[in-house]
Design a protein around this nucleic acid. Structure first.
Lengths: 354, 354
DNA sequence: CCAGAAACTGGAAACGTTTCCAGAACAGAA
DNA sequence: TTCTGTTCTGGAAACGTTTCCAGTTTCTGG
């Protein structure tokens, strides 16, 4: 915390040239070599570094992009953040992280606050959406890119999580599971609604070969909520026989489901196959590792960052709707029983095993 | 993305008063009620919101704080970020996330770049530290708070991870473990070095009751590295008998260790007790849940945020060194064998199990 | 050697805000 | 009524930068 910083004016005086020339020299545009040298050394001697605020005021660019999510702790958002950062940083953009909380109201406030001009663009992934939010985004004074849901006339990067859920169901059926439970999150959220649609569509199709399906709803998308919901679900075994598979709307919920299964002495995947969604790190390292529908979090983050980057450039084109295809990643939690599993360490009680 | 934003000047014209009065009216300082009303309505009609860049230029405050870490993906840093955000946001501060990468050089660059004045303060948690970095921090034009290591004359929030490691070792000895391995991360990192010191001190104390100790070093603090290191460690059983406990320098490493144990058919905690460090969410939900030394990530984040907040205020005091005490959280991965475990089927090889 | 073009330079304005300063209006007291 | 003190208001400067514009110098070709 030393003496206050040198200004361009001081560099100019030290170099004995005008302010304008100093600025040009430092940018290398239209200045003689002699001028550049003089100014460079003067700047170096003073330890000058340009003030981004002054520059922003003049250029009307902040070189900052905001990333707003409901909950920074969610691994999905962390992956997005990492990807966004990777794309933006090389272009000289800083990333401002904002938290919207779970309600739509604060998200609207946040979008409105863009009027104060602290960022050149916003990437937002709203958990819930309403008309006010859509309207606020349309009116926003800077480019806004929405992750998670495709919206009319708004730049967005979405994924078909309904289809993704279909993939999970199809996979379970394929490995012979017939009584499939679904642990979803809150229905009034964008992902919750989409995934419910996906499950309903997949299990009501005429080609669906299952015997029984049932949905239980968790209070939010966390392990604890998943555990509670799974307890409820598994407690009421359907008449046709116990559940042999559970689809979870989320990796965290899936982990809750596996814990609940453990409490009941059920072995995963032997007695109960479990699928998650989001393909997070935590699911990858969990034991058993989690079969999960990847929604391309990193890809979505990258795409959104690229989109906002295009927009803050001059490119003015109709709003783009980018879609990232979901794909299933099969791991241990739905693997057919291997030798290791049968002989294996999970020292849990031997159960009927269907 | 509507027409360009209204300025204070335009509000002033609309209200038919001077610029100065307009500013005062909006801040509620020294303006008549009539004036306030007029200006307020004019502002509302124009949908005015103040430009933070103009304000920053004049006030020499950006109302932004940077948080810089090596890797945003690490759950520890995510917890800190959340806590920092919680403290700062209510005071009107935005959080800019920066990534330093693993090398010390880029961290130095980052600290130097504070000269461009885009934030009022910095919270940094460097993985590695050298003289250049310390010097850069001392010279920094804005307050810098270091998380992770106590440094002379620099504000810092640290924790005694060496002592924390001692707690883990003590706990293992207490539950009867005698042959204790240590899976550490790179020694040239701040946490790696501290934890090695802690392990060495704890296991070489005259009161230490163990039979054998050994260290294996992972390439970094990840699950994959932990798995590889644990394989190496467990492959070379000491002469006095197989390891019955492993201390990991980190929850992620600990999970790697547990996976390695699984590969060898060892049951955790019966055959091998495992402890982690950092007390992360992932460790809490893992199966078995992880005994871990909490280093108070959230607390450290909060304390650092509070400290930087004090500093950007006028408070000029000698640098503060805040220490957060580590504490052990015992969970399943070191639990004494419970009925369920003992009564369980001899699915895995019966091992010494003392 | 000169005209014109090209390259370079400096003055000044502009970006949007806060705040110092001085002046004006107004109130209360003598 | 006049004086003093308080409250309110407007002009203007300042924060640090980029860039337009016009003026000056240097180069090039005839």
């Amino acid at each position: 915390m030393s003496s206050s910083r040198a200004t361009l004016m001081q560099v100019a005086e030290r170099a004995g040239v005008s302010l304008a020339s100093t600025s040009r020299a430092l940018h290398g545009t239209g200045a003689s070599q002699a001028m550049v040298d003089r100014v460079r050394t003067a700047a170096a001697e003073l330890g000058y570094s340009p003030d981004v605020i002054g520059r922003s005021l003049r250029m009307k660019r902040t070189f900052q992009i905001a990333f707003a999510v409901a909950d920074i702790g969610n691994p999905v958002y962390v992956e997005m953040l990492t990807a966004i950062h990777e794309v933006l940083a090389p272009h000289g953009y800083r990333v401002v992280v904002m938290s919207t909380g779970p309600t739509v109201g604060t998200t609207v406030d946040l979008v409105r606050s863009l009027g104060s001009g602290f960022v050149d663009g916003l990437i937002v992934s709203p958990l819930r959406t309403d008309d006010a939010l859509v309207e606020a985004i349309r009116q926003a004074p800077v480019p806004v890119v929405v992750i998670g849901r495709s919206l009319e006339n708004i730049d967005s990067v979405s994924t078909d999580s309904a289809a993704g859920l279909g993939q999970a169901v199809a996979h379970l059926v394929e490995i012979g599971r017939r009584r499939i439970g679904f642990v979803n999150g809150p229905l009034d959220t964008t992902p919750g609604a989409a995934r419910q649609r996906g499950f309903d569509a997949a299990t009501s199709a005429t080609t669906f070969a299952g015997d029984h399906t049932e949905t239980e709803r968790a209070d939010d998308f966390t392990v604890a909520a998943g555990l509670a919901a799974a307890r409820r679900l598994l407690a009421r075994d359907p008449e046709v026989g116990p559940f042999d598979a559970v689809v979870a709307a989320n990796d965290l919920l899936a982990i809750g489901v596996i814990r609940a299964a453990g409490e009941l002495g059920l072995s995963v995947p032997r007695d109960l196959a479990v699928t998650g969604m989001d393909d997070t790190e935590i699911g990858r390292v969990f034991q058993p590792s989690l079969t999960s529908v990847s929604l391309g979090s990193a890809d979505r983050g990258r795409a959104a960052a690229q989109l906002v980057l295009d927009r803050v450039g001059d490119v003015v084109e109709p709003a783009q709707q980018i879609a990232i295809g979901p794909h299933l990643v099969v791991r241990e939690s739905t693997a057919p029983p291997r030798a290791a599993d049968v002989a294996g360490p999970p020292a849990s009680k031997e159960k009927s095993a269907r």
